[in-house]
């Protein structure tokens, strides 16, 4: 029998405290705003149902080893779930701060410079893969801490190209 579990869930830059009871009852508390309560049942092959008093919804859930992918009514969420300990949970996922190439690619230009302040959506690095130029943009406003690539370089997926510190202080 599984005991009640205290978890922290992170979706984008939002963090939730989650308590899961052995009977499937789940309490989801956001950092601010109303608490959400539901009963979750697993139906097999990634299918779950999430029920509140007035409404039951289908959700598909799969785990790729690091992230839970959840589909509800055409919306997709990538959620990191970890056991809640005494420590303060991470406010932001690491992926938001270290920008990496999603595939093997060639660096065409590097508009970003270390020490530069950038706005959300600003192009930091332009890659080329599959004969297409692909801009790597800032996912949020912040300070470019370091640039780890140069023009003409062939970069591999997952290797950090730019360190971006979000506005509002270090994570």
């Amino acid at each position: 029998m599984t005991a009640r579990r205290a978890l922290t869930a992170t979706s984008g830059d939002r963090t939730y405290q989650v308590d899961v009871s052995p009977d499937g009852r789940v309490v989801v508390a956001p950092a601010a705003g109303a608490t959400f309560e539901a009963v979750v049942h697993y139906a097999g092959h990634g299918r779950t149902t999430v029920a509140t008093d007035g409404r039951t919804r289908l959700a598909h859930v799969v785990d790729d080893g690091t992230t839970r992918w959840v589909w509800i009514e055409g919306h997709v969420f990538e959620i990191a779930v970890e056991a809640r300990t005494g420590a303060r949970p991470r406010a932001r996922s690491a992926a938001g701060d270290r920008l990496a190439a999603p595939m093997p690619a060639t660096v065409v230009t590097v508009p970003a410079q270390a020490g530069q302040r950038v706005a959300r959506g600003e192009t930091l690095v332009v890659l080329e893969a599959m004969k297409m130029e692909l801009p790597l943009r800032a996912p949020h406003a912040g300070l470019v801490r370091a640039v780890h690539c140069r023009e003409g370089e062939l970069v591999q997926p997952g290797v950090t190209l730019v360190d971006l510190e979000p506005d509002g202080g270090a994570p």
Partner: peptide
């Protein structure tokens, strides 16, 4: 809703 589903799996 998605968080509730993710945390239960």
């Amino acid at each position: 809703w998605a968080v509730a589903a993710a945390a239960s799996v």
